[in-house]
């Protein structure tokens, strides 16, 4: 099975703004491998280094040391991002554009022909059920609708790898269900999905494999079934054990 996403001894350090001296280690020797066609859950508590990892994978941050590659190409090369789709945690789009214009803009970036873009936009608008609002400015959309526009833009280039950052964050149960359905559908189409989430139930439902990091270090990696079997507990319990959470007795 081919490796699509890979990090080797990935280390990221930030200048420490709080103490104004020394450097804060955000990631320390992270090794990850995501295979083609799998749904990979990337878990960790807040501040564990999930977002930093994503920032490196997307080329927003240069690693201090180590390497990260997508499809075997160093992430610092823009071409590495040709076959990926990215959905940020919150909705960050040009609010003065309509959904259709936004998708056309991203389609142009990927070099889609006009006819190809038309076809793809129509498909995606239908997929995310925004047909009724496609010609309305994004600023008039609800949060759920904006998240769906986000999904559509992440899929505009028919990517082989999807990187989702908390894809269901802030959505109502129906919205979460729809996102989950789309991830499942993408998996069935043979796409690779790499996503971070706090929703462990969701991860358990859709992921083939997971990695759990804490304080910038990889704690565990493996298939969901193996982890659950090994720890004789559900994923939430496994997660809490791994990050070393000690429940306080309720007085």
């Amino acid at each position: 099975m081919s490796v699509i996403l890979k990090t080797e001894k990935l280390r990221v350090e930030y200048p420490n703004r709080e103490s104004r001296q020394g450097r804060k280690v955000a990631l320390s020797g992270l090794d990850l491998e995501v295979n083609a066609g799998e749904v990979f859950g990337f878990l960790g508590p807040n501040g564990a280094g999930k977002t930093t990892t994503m920032n490196v994978l997307l080329g927003f941050l240069p690693p201090t040391s180590g390497t990260a590659s997508l499809f075997g190409i160093d992430v610092r090369q823009p071409i590495a991002r040709q076959r990926i789709g990215y959905l940020p945690e919150n909705t960050y789009y040009y609010k003065f554009l309509t959904a259709e214009e936004l998708l056309r803009f991203y389609a142009r970036i990927f070099g889609l022909t006009s006819a190809e873009a038309d076809r793809r936009i129509a498909e995606l608008i239908q997929l995310v059920e925004l047909g009724h609002a496609a010609k309305r400015a994004i600023k008039t959309y609800s949060k759920g609708m904006q998240q769906r526009v986000g999904l559509a833009q992440a899929l505009i280039n028919n990517p082989d790898l999807l990187i989702f950052d908390e894809p269901t964050s802030g959505l109502d149960p129906l919205g979460r269900m729809k996102v989950r359905e789309i991830i499942q559908r993408l998996k069935n189409e043979g796409k690779t999905v790499f996503f971070s989430s706090h929703e462990l139930g969701e991860v358990e439902t859709v992921c083939d494999r997971v990695a759990i990091i804490n304080q910038g270090e990889l704690k565990v990696r493996g298939s969901v079934a193996d982890l659950v079997e090994r720890h004789q507990a559900n994923l939430e319990k496994v997660f809490l054990d791994i990050i070393g959470y000690q429940p306080q007795p309720v007085s």
Binding site: L58, G59, F60, P78, I79, A80, R81, Q82, I84, Y86, P88, Y92, Y93, Y106, I109, F110, G150, Q153, A154, N157, I163
Partner: peptide, 8 residues
């Protein structure tokens, strides 16, 4: 971010 996540 979504912009630079593309080949730009």
């Amino acid at each position: 971010f979504p912009l630079l996540a593309k080949p730009v």
